[in-house]
Design a protein around this nucleic acid. Structure first.
Length: 554
RNA sequence: GCGCCUGUAGCUCAGUUGGAAAGAGCAACGGACUUCUAAUCCGUAGGUCGCAGGUUCGAAUCCUGCCAGGCGUACCA
């Protein structure tokens, strides 16, 4: 609809030019927007104001010239006016909105989909928490954002792969092994000191107990080094499996769990460093090996091999990203916690040094989550093993409420997550507000079916009965959905969907309270059933992009 | 010190990428259930968009400089 109006405006302007009223044949792109105030019409364009400097004419004069030459072949426009400093405002007939409903009915689950991606391959990597402890709330936000971005991109025509990078190598895994090993020793009755840098949480003791029961004798008989290595492998696998299960319950599943260790096993870290070395981007200084990231915009060079000979995390991360591009992804998206933002410049530098455009690497930074209970901050410290796990949050407030609340903020603003609020089944909790629309409409449709109303049918005759302002508002909102999805994909901002759904829900609840869907007039009833069915479809579609269910009953 | 993010109603936050008079929810106050789900709705009240300049027809939005908060600034990950 917008596109049709845009081309109407442009051809009117061209005619004005041919008639010699507008001197210049150069026209800006027509931007149509929905005014904030309903009194300013259904659509509005600043075309005349933007053209003013090119045409060297007052905006109002240009607007009038365009307005006089509009050819409304579809009979949509009830009234056009020049307003304010030179806006052209369009007031449409209710019938202009009826085709929207036809599109929603025809496209169903696909309504709102776009083909921005044109099948291009894109990878979203998210969560990627070290397998040294359980997932906590902060990871939950990253999971919700990453998963939703993946859903949205997939809905918009990208071929999306979801990946979890498992840091199953290096120092922190060794620390994990030692932590479990020392706890196990203690269980064996040996008094050993428990180093401060080791993980303190209770889950370490549980793991030690498990190993003791299964492999206790072998561990006791073997060397400490073997014992630590065994504990490390066992614990990392076990924790990874638990994370996978937690995420599954959170509605998040990955196409691939990518092991950091596998990069070393396949010699890919060495290969990658050799490639950079061949380009002259690697050098030795102070007995360590450095990557010349400052040549690619980073503030300084970075160590890739420490002087003790051990590669840094960054070294394998470069190899990992090289591997991603070799797997054929055109764009690679990493979802990181905001505390990693200092890492972006060096990773971008690495991507560029590997010969890929920086544009092909994007980072979504997700800000911290402050966990509250009834307004009081809940203390969290990973070191001390005091934290609220994602699993506890899911158990306490449910998957839907948690995922929805994580997406009620722009991902770059910090989020207060209140456990009590999340559990509240009231207006304070937006997830129920939106889901309630779906449940209410489902209920209406059931009642309608009992009375013999066909739910999914659309007819132009019936649709023409949709005339009250609340109905037009709903139709306009449905019409806006595809644009919201596109923007959400373009900016990788799922919260746009969340806010759209809350707005649509508000419009529906207002309509519901003012008008009855099932009336004595069969044609009007059919029209309204058809409308609310459309609303239900869009609510369900939107919620599914957020990974939230759309219940038929509440 | 430098870098990134954030400052919008009492609180929590949106703001269509530069548009018209600034938008919700919560909290406060007053109303609406014999009706398709009241987990809902209607109404009232609430603002120097951190501050100061600049860019132009027009700024919460872009630029510069301050102020405040968070995070980062490892041969940790």
């Amino acid at each position: 609809m917008k596109d049709t109006l845009k081309s109407m405006i442009l051809s009117a302007a061209r005619r004005a030019h041919e008639e010699g009223i507008l001197p210049c044949s150069d026209f800006p792109e027509v931007v149509l927007e929905t005014p904030k105030v309903e009194a300013h019409g259904d659509f509005s364009t600043n075309f005349a104001m933007v053209s003013a400097s090119i045409q060297k004419l007052p905006p109002k004069k240009i607007a009038q010239a365009v307005l006089d030459r509009l050819e409304d072949t579809r009979k949509w426009i009830q009234r056009v006016e020049v307003a304010g400093p030179g806006f052209i405002n369009f007031y449409l007939y209710p019938s202009a909105w009826h085709p929207v409903l036809e599109a929603v009915h025809a496209q169903g689950r696909q309504y709102g989909a776009a083909n921005l991606g044109k099948g291009r391959r894109i990878q979203v990597e998210y969560v990627s928490s070290n397998p040294t402890g359980p997932l906590h709330v902060g990871h939950g936000r990253g999971a919700a954002v990453g998963d939703s971005v993946a859903n949205i991109l997939s809905f918009c025509g990208y071929e999306v792969q979801r990946e979890y990078y498992v840091n199953d190598s290096g120092r922190q895994i060794e620390t994990l092994g030692r932590s479990v090993f020392f706890r196990l020793k203690a269980l064996l009755g040996q008094s050993v000191p428990f180093p401060e840098e080791c993980y303190q949480g209770d889950y370490i003791r549980s793991l030690a107990k498990e190993i003791l029961q299964a492999e206790g004798d072998a561990i006791a008989a073997g060397t400490d080094a073997d014992g630590i290595a065994f504990c490390a492998r066992y614990a990392a696998e076990k924790i990874t499996a638990q994370m996978e299960e937690d995420l599954r319950r959170f509605g998040v599943t990955f196409d691939r769990w990518f092991s950091e260790q596998s990069l070393y096993d396949a010699g890919k870290v060495d290969q990658t460093l050799a490639q950079l070395q061949a380009k002259g981007d690697i050098y030795e200084k102070d007995r360590a090996v450095w990557f010349r990231s400052s040549a690619y915009g980073d503030e300084k060079d970075r160590v890739v091999i420490r002087k003790d000979g051990q590669p840094t995390y960054f070294a394998s991360d470069i190899a990992y990203h090289k591997d991603k591009y070799e797997r054929g992804f055109e764009t690679v998206i990493d979802v990181w916690g905001a505390d990693h933002h200092g890492y972006i410049a060096r990773m971008k530098a690495a991507v560029e040094a590997l010969g890929h455009s920086k544009e092909r690497f994007k980072v979504i930074l997700v800000q911290l989550v402050n966990l509250l209970r009834a307004g009081v901050p809940v203390a969290m410290s990973t070191r001390a093993g005091e934290f609220v796990t994602l699993r506890e949050v899911i158990d306490e407030v449910g998957k839907d409420a948690a995922r929805f609340l994580f997406l009620t903020r722009h991902h770059e603003s910090p989020l207060d997550f209140d456990l009590e609020l999340a559990k509240k089944q009231s207006n304070e909790n937006p997830v129920y507000y939106v889901q309630y629309v779906h449940a209410r409409i489902s209920s209406i449709l059931n009642k309608g079916k009992e009375r013999g109303v066909e739910e999914a049918s659309f007819s132009r005759e019936a649709a023409s009965k949709l005339l009250v302002p609340e109905e037009i508002r709903l139709l306009k909102a449905l019409a806006a959905y595809p644009e919201v999805v596109r923007q959400s994909a373009a900016f990788m901002e799922p919260h746009r969907i969340t806010f759209y759904l809350m707005d649509l829900a508000a419009l529906f609840h207002a309509y519901y309270n003012k008008h009855r869907v099932l009336t004595d007039d069969p044609i009007l009833t059919r029209a309204r059933v058809s409308l609310v069915f459309g609303v239900k479809e869009v609510i369900r579609n939107g919620l599914s992009l957020l990974g939230v269910s759309a219940p038929k009953k509440m």
